[in-house]
Simulated assay, not measured.
Amino acid sequence: MTAPSNKAQLFSAWHLLLCAWALALVASLSALFIGEVMGQAPCNLCWFQRVFMFPLAIVLGVACYRSDATVWRYALPVAGLGWLVALYHSLLYFGVFGDSIQPCGAGGSCSSSNMTIFGAIALPVLSLIVFSLICMLLLMISRRSTQ
């Protein structure tokens, strides 16, 4: 069996990059929809997660357009920091650290029932899932682009 060509590896990396960008774009647009259209004010931790997600949508979009498989070098630290904030927020949501969701008192609250998707997935957990997927995709891109 022959090794895949460099062009095939870049093509595959581009598809992974497209998926990462789509996740970041949908997450960013969803956050804007919840805040601006539905009128749900985000809590402080949600704002910090937005600080990391919104630039990812732009950076990954430009990288898709330019077919830049090296984007993982500067996008992964941003996604990783967003993941850490989302992890902390999720742990607060589940009451692992002290009282559940206390930091959400400033601004909106993530503990209300209208801050869940399908009545089951809380927004902090959904953010953690999206950041995790983006980090995994960027790590896969790094492996494909360095081979």
Results as ranks from 00 to 15, higher is better:
71 V>P: 05
72 W>N: 02
126 L>A: 15
45 L>Q: 04
36 E>R: 01
46 C>E: 14
46 C>M: 14
109 S>E: 14
5 S>V: 12
67 S>R: 08
45 L>M: 12
119 G>H: 09
35 G>L: 11
126 L>M: 10
62 V>P: 01
82 G>V: 05
140 M>Y: 10
39 G>R: 08
40 Q>G: 00
48 F>Y: 15
135 C>G: 01
78 V>R: 00
85 V>H: 02
53 M>K: 04
54 F>I: 12
69 A>E: 05
65 Y>R: 07
136 M>C: 07
76 L>V: 01
30 S>W: 15
15 H>I: 09
141 I>V: 15
101 I>H: 02
114 N>T: 14
5 S>D: 12
2 T>G: 03
119 G>L: 07
3 A>Y: 09
144 R>F: 11
18 L>R: 06
144 R>V: 09
25 L>C: 07
20 A>L: 11
115 M>I: 06
143 R>L: 15
57 A>H: 05
28 S>Q: 05
92 L>W: 07
5 S>M: 11
89 H>I: 11
61 G>H: 05
50 R>I: 14
53 M>G: 04
147 Q>F: 10
6 N>A: 12
38 M>W: 15
43 C>K: 00
104 C>Y: 02
123 L>G: 01
1 M>N: 04
131 F>V: 04
53 M>Q: 08
119 G>S: 02
73 R>N: 10
49 Q>M: 15
86 A>C: 10
118 F>N: 00
9 Q>D: 09
49 Q>C: 14
127 S>E: 08
75 A>M: 06
105 G>A: 12
86 A>E: 11
119 G>C: 02
77 P>K: 06
92 L>N: 04
43 C>W: 05
35 G>F: 10
147 Q>W: 09
3 A>H: 08
99 D>G: 03
55 P>Y: 05
71 V>L: 02
84 L>Q: 02
15 H>F: 12
11 F>N: 05
7 K>Q: 14
72 W>C: 03
56 L>H: 01
15 H>Q: 08
32 L>V: 13
86 A>M: 10
35 G>Y: 14
41 A>T: 14
77 P>R: 06
121 I>H: 02
143 R>I: 06
109 S>A: 10
120 A>Q: 06
68 D>E: 13
77 P>D: 11
78 V>K: 00
76 L>F: 15
41 A>Q: 13
80 G>F: 13
